[in-house]
Design a protein around this nucleic acid. Structure first.
Lengths: 349, 349
DNA sequence: TTGTACGCGTTATCAT
DNA sequence: ATGATAACGCGTACAA
């Protein structure tokens, strides 16, 4: 009947068993005292003792001493009750957590229920109180948001939609290869009337998707019907639904739709289902994100952003501790490519 | 240019500013030394000083001293590359994390990439090394898995599919209200040939869903066609797809399908789409889980398990520290009800 | 109310 | 060349 937690071995236990001091245990296990500082025999005794006791240093004690919690804050771009409504920031968090573990780090996701919390400094306070070692921001909206953390002296990494006005490392995505492949795929199937549903506003990242779309068509000599470009406010299912309804109501109805986000595509799917438009027979549909596109009915061709890669790169940057000192030079953003995967949702025009 | 992290206030700083000892700062801020133990003026001085300095106790130092990390391990039933394939254990983790924060606790999700890791004790080691204060297990598969943690002296809470052979607190779901309402809804629409797609095997929780389904029909005097009950191995999309194809191939094709899981329903949706069977015109579909059912095309009527409530209850149990001592009596599981929400996926038979 | 030991590992200083 | 001693990080708990 294990009432109290079975006491776990401490460095003291190991030291006693090996007949050495605690300092030596620490040195050996961390490789701090390299080969020449400690005799091979002693070294082995320590290792054996540690193994025998199943010793693992107390992470809190270590963190306290090293002034490094090994926890990094992650601020997703949006949070809602149901994560399925915001797949990208959400899945990004999952991948960050996984990558962090690989490096002995941990992610603390700071969810702002209200957008107000973003500005109020509530989140800064939250993460600061927990002594995070740094912060990963997904598409921060305001300069202040980023600077709050920098002012506090924390390393910051921006993902996906970095504010270039703030000099931090950033990891971004190149929409071109994926979108180009997607459009060329549709063109090859004979489509000429291809619609675009995406986000308006002036953020370069969102505009870039439209630009890639445009460029691919222009390159093929296709003239884009202005009515076929539908810009909405946000990546929400309802927006995709309404935009698609609008497209279906046009006299010049498109034969294919590029939806710039999985949930935009989901909304499109709902509208098409209601209107009894069959995919791919009556209309072809391609999405961006490729998070759950493959699981829909029908499975959608989609352009994937390498969220796993983004996460790994971000953690990698944080894991090799911030540059010793002078290297404050505005770092060049790391750009990762997108990739298109065709599925059953496209067919001949 | 904030090179080094702006030093954060310590209890020492507060003590100095308030002209008292660190012990008193701790006592006042934790309410340990309640009103009668410290003079109101001093008390106020401490509070003022803490507020002025924006003091928040270092969580690592506190945890180290109190021998309590405030971190709890969560072992989801399944983990894959894409969390959207296993919505329940996944969303449970999200809700656990959220509820934990509310109580000043944290969740560490231990994902076993391989099922082998579950038995090997690798996960126990992982969590033990991180000094978790307890463990939340979602539908553990083997008794050993649970006992490993109990042997180590950690409090364990089992969710959804507890192993009753191990005496731990548990939180379970009552499928009856939701499934009964769903079937009665279909009956009221005139359906008599209602199919069931669910999990076989001998786990009582999975069987219970079928039993509730059966009972509701029997109560209405409906005879169930044995061909209409399809049992599959796991809650996977592909299984729902194949089972539905089988159902569509029957000479006595059902007019409605109850899919015992959102991704079973998703598979059904794919099969129905391929076969060009319209919902709800040609066939009615109801799912279990209600995680993303509302977002599909068409939105599915679904039975919801209160994952948020489950999470809150679990955290609640852990937050009020384990029973002082003797109260080892096998605790009664906490049972929470399901709820049915009709949507556009059902219609007259 | 205060002093002091403590939790546990790391790091800088000291001793052979 | 090898290893030990002691201080430290920060807050809490108990005795004084």
């Amino acid at each position: 009947m294990p009432k109290a937690r079975s006491r776990v071995a401490t460095s003291h236990d190991v030291a006693r068993l090996a007949g050495v001091s605690r300092a030596l245990v620490s040195g050996v296990l961390n490789g701090t005292m390299s080969t020449m500082r400690v005799s091979p025999e002693t070294r082995q005794r320590v290792l054996d003792a540690a193994a025998e006791l199943g010793y693992s240093p107390h992470p809190l004690a270590r963190a306290l001493r090293q002034q490094r919690s090994n926890v990094y804050g992650y601020l997703p771009r949006a949070t809602r009750r149901n994560p399925y409504e915001h797949p990208v920031p959400f899945l990004l968090g999952v991948h960050l957590a996984k990558a962090a573990i690989q490096h002995g780090l941990h992610i603390l996701e700071a969810s702002a229920e209200t957008t107000a919390a973003h500005e109020s400094g509530e989140l800064v306070r939250f993460l600061r109180d927990r002594r995070v070692d740094g912060v990963i921001l997904d598409s921060p909206r305001t300069t202040e948001e980023v600077e709050q953390f920098l002012d506090y002296g924390l390393p910051v990494i921006q993902l996906i939609r970095p504010l270039t006005s703030v000099p931090t490392p950033a990891i971004i995505v190149d929409p071109k290869p994926g979108i180009t492949a997607a459009i060329e795929h549709l063109l090859a199937l004979g489509h000429r009337a291809i619609a675009f549903i995406g986000i308006g506003g002036d953020h370069p990242v969102d505009r870039a998707r439209l630009n890639c779309f445009r460029a691919a068509l222009v390159r093929a000599g296709v003239v884009i019907d202005p009515e076929h470009v539908r810009l909405v406010d946000d990546y929400e299912i309802g927006n995709g639904l309404r935009a698609t309804e609008d497209l279906l109501a046009l006299s010049s109805r498109p034969t294919a739709i590029f939806a710039s986000g999985d949930n935009i595509a989901l909304g499109a799917l709902q509208a098409l289902y209601r209107a009894n438009v069959r995919i791919p027979d009556d209309l072809s549909l391609v999405s961006y994100d490729d998070i759950y596109a493959a699981h829909l009915a029908p499975p959608l061709a989609s352009v994937r952003q390498p969220l796993d890669e983004i996460a790994e790169q971000a953690i990698g940057l944080l894991a090799r501790r911030p540059s010793p000192d002078g290297e404050e030079a505005a770092p060049e953003p790391i750009m990762l490519p997108t990739k298109f995967t065709p599925r059953g949702s496209t067919g001949p025009a």
